[in-house]
Simulated scan of single mutants.
Amino acid sequence: MKSLIFLLLILPILSASASWESVESPHFRVYYQEGTVDPTSILQIAEDFYAEMPQLTDRMPAGMIDIWVCDTQKEFQDSVHAPIQDWAVGCAFPLSRRIIIQNPKHIALAKLQLVQVLRHEIAHVLFGQCTRKAVKEIPLWFIEGIAIYFADEWVPSRHETLLKHIFSKSILPLQALTRGFPSSQTGADLAYAESQDALRWLVEVKGRDVLFSLISELHAGNNFNTAFEAVVGWDLATFDVLWRESLAERYKWASLFSNSYFLWGGLGGLALLGYLVRRNRRQRHLNKLSQQENTMDTFFRT
């Protein structure tokens, strides 16, 4: 059902001059300006993802999740009504069940996909609602890692960023990403890449069931640090150290290139190999010419 509403009455932080329409599904309500976006595709993506996450949704109180689609970047910045970087295309307010995203055309210009952005922000809301009793104590790296993991995101630039910092031995400790991320886009890219990898490694070494057991503890309102140590078996400081140590093992080839001896030795070896290949090719060519010279052309045979 569509209904025309005035933003001043519904969400005062947005422009009062813009008129908005809404369309609903069982769990989501999309607000948009007519002619700017197809709301049904947004609802479909949202409901599909919602259905994938019963481990979280079954623990949530009933209620709709609102998705506001802003047509311009300025409108998006004004709508968030909180400090946010210029390069951001989505923002979630988990405790109020509200998501604000830019128009999909702007998301595409940022080399991202609408599906990824929506799933990421919805994951924030689902996780935040599920753990609302303990959400203020949860480190930001874990919150973002959870959203990326559940959204099943793959952003190649993050992988490249992680490798670059493994190469330069400039990985940030997770402790530095507890309450905030760097404000620059490059710094934030590293923070997101680390959050993604740390959460993925946790699941790899401890299992997905351990992750949901931890979420259950948070759902019950238990302290994050205490719950993490009880469920995972490591305190956060130990996990931080072990995760950073695992990077060198899991990305061995990147670690090798971080050593100048191996780097220059490897480059020298490649140069030598190239020289030998070229010399062998030239020698084969000379041998072929020699054989041709020693062979009498049939024209001269009697």
Rank of each mutant, 00 (worst) to 15 (best):
L4K: 10
I10D: 14
P12G: 04
S15L: 00
A16C: 08
W20S: 03
S22R: 10
V23M: 12
V23H: 04
S25F: 06
H27S: 14
F28M: 01
R29N: 09
Q33K: 12
T40S: 12
S41T: 13
L43G: 09
I45G: 01
F49L: 01
F49Q: 02
Y50K: 02
Y50T: 00
E52R: 11
M53T: 10
P54T: 05
P54A: 06
L56A: 02
T57C: 07
T57S: 13
R59I: 07
M64S: 11
D66K: 05
V69H: 05
D71F: 05
V80A: 03
H81Y: 12
P83W: 02
P83Y: 02
D86W: 08
A88C: 12
C91K: 04
L95M: 12
S96V: 11
I100S: 04
I100A: 10
Q102P: 03
P104D: 12
I107R: 07
L109M: 11
V115P: 03
V117G: 08
R119K: 15
A123V: 08
A123D: 00
V125M: 01
G128A: 04
G128R: 01
G128H: 00
Q129N: 10
R132P: 02
E137D: 15
I138T: 08
P139A: 04
L140Q: 13
I148K: 00
Y149E: 02
A151V: 01
A151R: 03
E153T: 13
R158K: 09
E160F: 08
Q175V: 07
Q175S: 15
P182H: 08
S183Y: 06
S183Q: 13
D189N: 15
A191G: 05
Y192I: 00
S195M: 08
R200G: 06
W201G: 07
V203S: 09
G207A: 10
R208H: 10
L211D: 05
F212C: 09
S213Q: 15
S216N: 15
S216I: 03
H219I: 03
A220S: 14
G221M: 09
G221H: 06
N222W: 05
N222I: 05
N223D: 15
F224G: 10
T226Q: 14
E229M: 09
A230S: 14
V231N: 00
W234M: 15
W234I: 00
D235Y: 05
L236Y: 11
T238V: 13
T238E: 15
D240I: 08
V241D: 12
R244K: 15
L247K: 01
E249F: 05
S258Q: 03
L263K: 10
G266T: 01
A271L: 15
L273N: 05
G274D: 04
R278D: 14
R279C: 03
N280C: 02
R281G: 05
Q283T: 10
H285Q: 15
F299S: 13
F299G: 06
